[in-house]
Nucleic acid binder design. Structure first.
Lengths: 257, 257
DNA sequence: TTGCGACTCCTTACAACGTAAAGTAACCTT
DNA sequence: AAGGTTACTTTACGTTGTAAGGAGTCGCAA
């Protein structure tokens, strides 16, 4: 199931995200941790073990119990919000437009693609959560800034920003999750897919006749780059192809009106 | 976190999905349940209470304990697979091409959009799971069949199928989850968004200066249809706009090569 | 008719989870 | 030195998926 981010107390979440913590008069023992340290630890755990990280695991990595985290962070949902936004800080906040908006959007998309590869757990945080944190804003702002250069009105651009965003995310997810599925059992991509296809074909031998169009799509393949694993080939090719079509559409909108 | 479908024993999953259960010589008490009944009950629970349904809840709805389900279904993951595929049986498996592929794809997308609205929990099942079940296949086959009519080669169509699919899903998710978030606390969309924007603006008053491009996009609005809730307006507009651009791109590819 | 084995379904139990509650000890302020 | 505030721990509760074992039911062979 999806982690619903942005579900906690909105004020507290947003204060944490925007670091609006008022430095108050302090008393009592010195804090041994910090929100930053916790978020970093949580990201490290998630990078290693997937989104199914536990408060106990994060605490342990910091030499504390799970409950110690609750001094700094209201709950797991809010921690996920913070992780999400923090991770996005890795991404560029602006793109050169020298070689045109199309090249810039492509760079944005590639950066996102690689980012999702580095932090696959991000893909498991609800895709449609409201944009809450500063870095999240910055990432979308970067895309918006590029697209504004097309001269299209905001009304049209909103749909385009969404489309590009959804597409990149969806495409990245296809790789990330297949990779995770294979990785969990230690199988390589090929074996994982092979095991499933084999069973499927055994049980439903005339699969190709039942779904002729899919069969048609599947069999028109580029020569495979032996450097990359099976799945990567497919995914990268589809990513490039889909993005190309999408940007062709944007170009059409720019040229026409 | 995402429910990883397709994680269980592949043979057993696929046998269940394709109903390849061999009718064996039976002995022992008559089964009081069936896989179908369980899947139906699980879908009903998920429709009502979201993807965070429990085996106990499904059992209870059928007047059994949670463990009774394990006689029919190997585990929760496999049950989710079955629910997913069963739900997709609602969707059309082919589309008229009389008015052209573009209109047909639009119908496909609209059907998916409405489908996701009916069963928002489907969006919480991993978007990128391998296509496993017959109805899932049929849905993609339907889209593929339409797009094949463009005359584009399979190589190009694969990226397009992916793009359309990701886009529709992503767009639907934006509505579904905001709806769920509001619904959970009983807030209407407007209030929910308003609460967040208000806090954000209070904490970060010059938000609009920090993210001028987003501000620009946000403020170029169509007149709002007072019939629909706030969020619906936005989402539907972006959905239509994004799809239009995407299909323009496909049209470009058809015209050019 | 009488078992026997297969089968459904239940009870019990366990480990893992998020987190509430309450306690202990460290530290600043007065 | 006292008192209040804070960091962190321990313990505990309610939920979750599901393993293990047992009770009862039925078909079939002897």
């Amino acid at each position: 199931m999806v982690v619903y981010a942005g579900q906690g107390d909105p004020r507290r979440s947003i204060e944490l995200l925007w670091r609006a913590s008022v430095a108050e008069k302090r008393s009592g023992p010195k804090p041994g941790l910090s929100v930053d340290a916790i978020v970093d630890a949580a990201i490290a755990v998630a990078d290693e073990h997937g989104m199914a990280f536990s408060m106990r695991a994060v605490g342990e990595r910091l030499g504390r119990t799970a409950m110690a985290l609750y001094t700094y962070v209201p709950g797991k949902n809010e921690l996920v919000d913070l992780m999400y936004d923090r991770a996005m800080a890795e991404l560029p906040t602006s793109y050169e437009l020298d070689d045109g908006w199309r090249a810039a959007v492509t760079r944005w998309a590639n950066d996102m693609w690689e980012f999702y590869g580095r932090h696959p757990w991000v893909l498991q945080v609800s895709q449609a959560r409201p944009v809450l944190g500063p870095h999240e804003f910055a990432v979308i702002e970067a895309l918006a800034a590029i697209l504004v250069a097309t001269g299209l009105p905001g009304r049209e651009l909103r749909g385009i920003v969404g489309a590009v965003n959804y597409f990149v995310r969806g495409a990245a997810q296809t790789v990330a999750e297949a990779r995770a599925a294979g990785g969990a059992t230690g199988e390589a991509d090929e074996e994982w897919w092979y095991a499933r296809s084999a069973v499927l074909l055994e049980i439903e031998p005339d699969l190709e006749k039942k779904f002729p169009m899919l069969h048609l799509l599947e069999n028109d393949r580029e020569p495979i780059d032996p450097e990359l694993p099976y799945l990567e080939n497919d995914a990268v090719e589809n990513f490039r192809g889909g993005l190309k079509v999408l940007l062709d559409g944007v170009e059409g909108a720019v040229a026409k009106p």
